[in-house]
């Protein structure tokens, strides 16, 4: 696997996801600074990590969505390269339009950092093939703006097309997201955005390894 983790000013979970990818695939991804030459076609996975790109100023993900490197990401996503956006990465993906909807301030108006249980809703994707349908995962969340919102028509379409990848189980929604949505796919199913941090649930010493299969799925789909 040749993965690229794109680092914006203010990204802060790039090393966490890089370690999870390396553990799953055996090869370390390349960390790519947004201001460097751009993203050429040699990568077979692009990851947008968690953090506070541009300080979350203006709106979470809004400025990163207009960074020159993001044009390369959009082009490659359109040509089928898998793209994974976690937390701030998910916010950036909705700001670029690669994924529909928006992530609003948590309904509690507070940052939410805790383990939540989410259910795998779609297993026919390169991100989730190693999970069982309906499997429940314990994964940490850490965000202030994870309240997924889209109009009813969009939400219905996501449901009908099987594009809701992960859903918080009843009573575990940490942010007020519509229909308990934790992660969604694009129509071509090569772009996944999710708020929880599977990369921080890959080490038995830290409590949960439920996020590991996501990276294993990618490693086996791409290798």
């Amino acid at each position: 696997m040749k993965a690229a983790v794109v680092v914006f000013p203010g990204s802060n979970r790039e090393h966490d996801v890089a370690k999870a990818l390396e553990r799953a695939s055996g090869s370390a991804p390349k960390l790519i600074w947004h201001g460097d030459a751009g993203l050429d076609d040699k990568y077979d996975l692009i990851v947008l990590p968690g953090g506070f790109s541009y300080g979350d100023y203006l709106r979470c993900g809004a400025m990163a969505a207009h960074s020159p490197i993001t044009r390369d990401i959009i082009r490659q996503a359109s040509s089928g390269t898998p793209v994974l956006g976690i937390c701030n990465g998910f916010q950036i993906l909705t700001e670029t339009g690669l994924l529909p909807g928006a992530l609003m301030r948590n309904a509690s108006l507070k940052f939410a950092s805790r383990y939540v249980t989410m259910r795998v809703e779609a297993t026919n994707t390169m991100f989730t093939s190693r999970y069982k349908a309906g499997q429940e995962l314990s994964v940490p969340v850490a965000h202030g703006d994870g309240n997924y919102f889209a109009d009813d028509e969009t939400l219905d379409r996501l449901e009908d097309e099987g594009r809701v990848a992960f859903r918080y189980v009843k009573g575990q929604n940490p942010n007020g997201a519509s229909r308990d949505i934790a992660g969604i796919l694009n129509a071509k199913r090569n772009v996944l955005g999710l708020m929880p941090h599977p990369e921080n649930a890959t080490d038995p010493l830290l409590g949960s390894t439920d996020g590991k299969a996501l990276f294993d799925s990618l490693a086996s789909a791409i290798s």
Partner: peptide, 25 residues
């Protein structure tokens, strides 16, 4: 209080708030 603090980032928090002391690998 502590659920407003990111406790898991950096992937080395072995013991999170609520115990006697935090343990960081």
């Amino acid at each position: 209080i502590y659920e407003q603090y990111d406790t898991t980032i950096m992937g080395n928090t072995v013991q999170r708030p609520g115990g006697d002391a935090a343990v960081i690998r």
